[in-house]
């Protein structure tokens, strides 16, 4: 019964994936070895597509692997299996936090946690900047400092920043606008 197996396997992946979608990869390779529903090469393609489509990567992976293994029902069951541990665990933690939010230990923990949360987001920002605004391979090749920074990328970033500050539009307009600019100017060749 592949449906039941898929659900159960992804329930376990959801339970043991800590710290973001890519942490689920070792488990997905393991499932491939164990059941043969998909090959390692297929999994590599699924990772590439999951990273370049909207939605959290972990969820995209679960949906894709589920679909490849057992069609639409498979994709729904894999995704549900993957998120049910989250729903259970977070609901319990959330109840605990509500009850003890005025406790000085809980307050102290969050005093430290908020600083780390901001630091981790800044680190994530650096890794996005590295792949979108900076061209390290080209710089290593030519050694010219101007080749390190993508000028069209910087101009687009400045335009996005200005528009956000001036009109505060919904993020979707900034994302959509940048996609159109990327297509019209052929951004891959420019960065």
């Amino acid at each position: 019964m592949i449906y039941l197996q898929l659900f159960w396997e992804f329930f376990k992946v959801g339970l043991f994936t800590v710290g973001g979608g890519l942490a689920s990869l070792p488990f997905l390779y393991d499932i491939s070895d164990k059941f043969g529903w998909y090959t390692h090469a297929q999994l590599a393609d699924m990772i590439a597509i999951s990273e370049s489509t909207p939605g959290p990567i972990g969820i995209n992976m679960a949906t894709y692997v589920g679909f490849t293994s057992a069609g639409i029902i498979g994709s729904v069951l894999a995704t549900l299996g993957f998120i049910i541990p989250s729903i259970i665990i977070v609901s319990i933690v959330s109840g605990f936090l509500k009850k003890f939010s005025e406790n000085k230990f809980v307050k102290g923990a969050f005093y430290g946690l908020r600083a780390v949360s901001v630091a981790l987001i800044c680190a994530a920002l650096v890794s996005v900047v590295k792949i979108s605004l900076i061209n390290i391979p080209l710089f290593q090749e030519t050694g010219a400092v101007l080749d390190l920074i993508s000028i069209p990328g910087i101009i687009l970033a400045a335009a996005c920043y200005f528009i956000l500050k001036k009109w505060n539009p919904h993020p979707v307009f900034v994302l959509g606008g940048s996609a159109v600019v990327g297509i019209l100017l052929g951004f891959v060749g420019l960065i």
Partner: peptide
């Protein structure tokens, strides 16, 4: 190409959020 553009916007959006 679309994603090369979108990634630039994502940088700016995360920056203003953070």
């Amino acid at each position: 190409n679309a994603f090369a553009g979108i990634r630039v916007a994502v940088c700016v959006l995360i920056f203003t959020a953070v």
